[in-house]
Simulated scan of single mutants.
Amino acid sequence: MQEKTIEKMEAEIYEQYQNVIAPYIAELEVRDGEYPIEILNEIRSIFTHLSRCKLQNNLNEIESANRHVKRAILDCYKYICISIAQTISEFRQDYIKVDLTLADNGKFLAKLNDLELIAKNAFKEAKKSEIKQKSVEAKYKLYEKAYNAYNEVEKFIEDSNEAILFASSHSKKSNRITIISCIITAISIAVTVIAIL
């Protein structure tokens, strides 16, 4: 009976690794070119406990492995949130000279700010759960919420590409008009000063 339970729990761990952890690792590698050592340490711990379980037929080892699976997923959530936050920051820096209020008739920037605030607050709440030493399950739900919120921000930016390009092209036209107006004003002042002399 215990052997069937161990086999079932072991299969669930492999499934979590294959269907959840590995794709998150791939996402981090694509985003940042690497993935954090903390995740690798959790994976090492998972497989250390799995091997002990096989050698000792000990249910406690499989439960320990399962806890490390949760921690590995938590670490993936944390680092992907950080990566997306960095991407959003870079987006804002890249478009600092663009009047994003022109995008989608002013709706884009307001929604971006709202979504980003929701994501930041969700991430702060998740980080605070670590300080408060909440259960792994509670932390898992909070980090998952933050991960989903940051994904929503990133998807919103991607889906708004056309509106962003519109704002970008019209901001440049507006800047050109401002520069031309300044030059014309300067020439007018110069001509007036010369005429007075």
Rank of each mutant, 00 (worst) to 15 (best):
E116N: 11
R67K: 15
S64R: 10
N121Y: 02
F156R: 02
I177V: 15
L59S: 10
A119S: 14
I46Y: 04
V153W: 02
I62E: 00
S83D: 10
Q86A: 12
I21Y: 09
C81Y: 05
I131K: 13
L142V: 02
I80H: 15
I179Y: 05
A103M: 02
I118N: 09
I131Q: 12
N41P: 00
E152A: 14
V191G: 06
Y14G: 04
I187V: 11
I96S: 12
I118P: 00
P36Y: 12
I183G: 00
E42S: 04
L197K: 04
G33Q: 11
K145S: 12
E152K: 13
T185D: 00
I189A: 15
I73Q: 14
A110T: 11
S129T: 03
N161G: 11
L40A: 14
H68Y: 14
E162S: 10
L142T: 04
K78Y: 14
S188P: 02
L28Y: 06
N66C: 02
Q133N: 13
N41T: 00
N105T: 05
E116V: 01
K54Y: 09
K111S: 00
N57H: 11
E38F: 01
S171M: 15
F166D: 03
Y95C: 04
F108T: 03
D159H: 06
F47D: 02
E137A: 09
R31K: 12
K111R: 04
K107T: 07
L142R: 09
D32H: 01
K155I: 15
N19D: 11
P36F: 13
Y14S: 01
K173Q: 07
Q93R: 13
V20I: 15
T101F: 12
L117Q: 15
K173I: 13
T5P: 00
G106D: 07
K4H: 03
E152R: 13
V153M: 03
Y147S: 06
I84A: 06
N41A: 02
K111P: 00
P23V: 05
Y79H: 08
T101M: 14
N148A: 15
K124D: 13
Y143T: 00
K107M: 09
E10H: 11
I73V: 12
E144S: 13
N60F: 06
K124C: 03
L28V: 05
I179W: 03
K139N: 10
E90F: 02
E137K: 05
F156A: 08
I37E: 12
Y14P: 01
Y140L: 08
D114N: 07
V69R: 09
N57M: 07
I43N: 14
T192H: 10
I187A: 06
Q56M: 14
N57S: 10
D104A: 14
F123P: 04
G33N: 11
R71C: 02
I164W: 03
A126W: 03
S188D: 14
E38V: 15
V136K: 13
A138R: 13
E116A: 04
E34Q: 08
E3F: 01
A195I: 02
E42C: 05
E158W: 06
I73L: 10
Q56V: 05
E34N: 13
V136N: 09
I88Y: 11
D94V: 04
M9F: 04
V136Y: 15
N175D: 11
Q16P: 00
E12Q: 15
K127F: 00
N151P: 04
E130T: 04
S169I: 08
V136D: 09
K172Q: 07
T5E: 01
N57L: 08
P23K: 10
Q16V: 04
